[in-house]
């Protein structure tokens, strides 16, 4: 954790600029207008600064009490094709129609 601790002694550590907000929005496929970008950049700075306190958390052994849940692979009744398509904006010949690829 030394490298993050070292970069953690000023406001710069959590300041978020508009470019970073645009980059993350592109990764998440959410278009933002310019006002939203500026607003989010300011808010994210505050929120990420608050998250910085997680640096104080000691490494903790995680004893996950997990078991696999299995069932026999048998054919069961499910949604009909018509039901599955019933909320789609556009369908054709029993398929979903998505936007063009390029």
């Amino acid at each position: 954790m030394s490298d993050t601790a070292a970069s953690n002694d000023g406001e710069d550590a959590t300041a978020v600029d508009a470019e970073e907000v645009r980059h993350v929005a592109e990764l998440a496929r959410v278009r933002l207008d310019d006002d939203e970008v500026d607003e989010f950049a300011a808010q994210f700075g505050d929120i990420l600064e608050y998250f910085e306190a997680l640096d104080e958390v000691p490494e903790t052994e995680r004893e996950e009490d997990l078991v696999n849940v299995m069932r026999p692979d048998e054919v069961e009744e499910g949604l009909t094709q018509a039901e599955a398509l019933s909320n789609a904006e556009e369908t054709a010949d029993g398929y979903f129609v998505g936007p063009k690829v390029s």
């Binding site: 929005a25 592109e26 998440a28 496929r29 959410v30 278009r31 933002l32 207008d33 998505g98 936007p99 063009k100 690829v101 390029s102």
Partner: peptide
């Protein structure tokens, strides 16, 4: 295209 359409839908 699909990336743009998804981003606009989600906006």
């Amino acid at each position: 295209n699909w990336n743009e359409s998804f981003a606009e839908t989600r906006e």
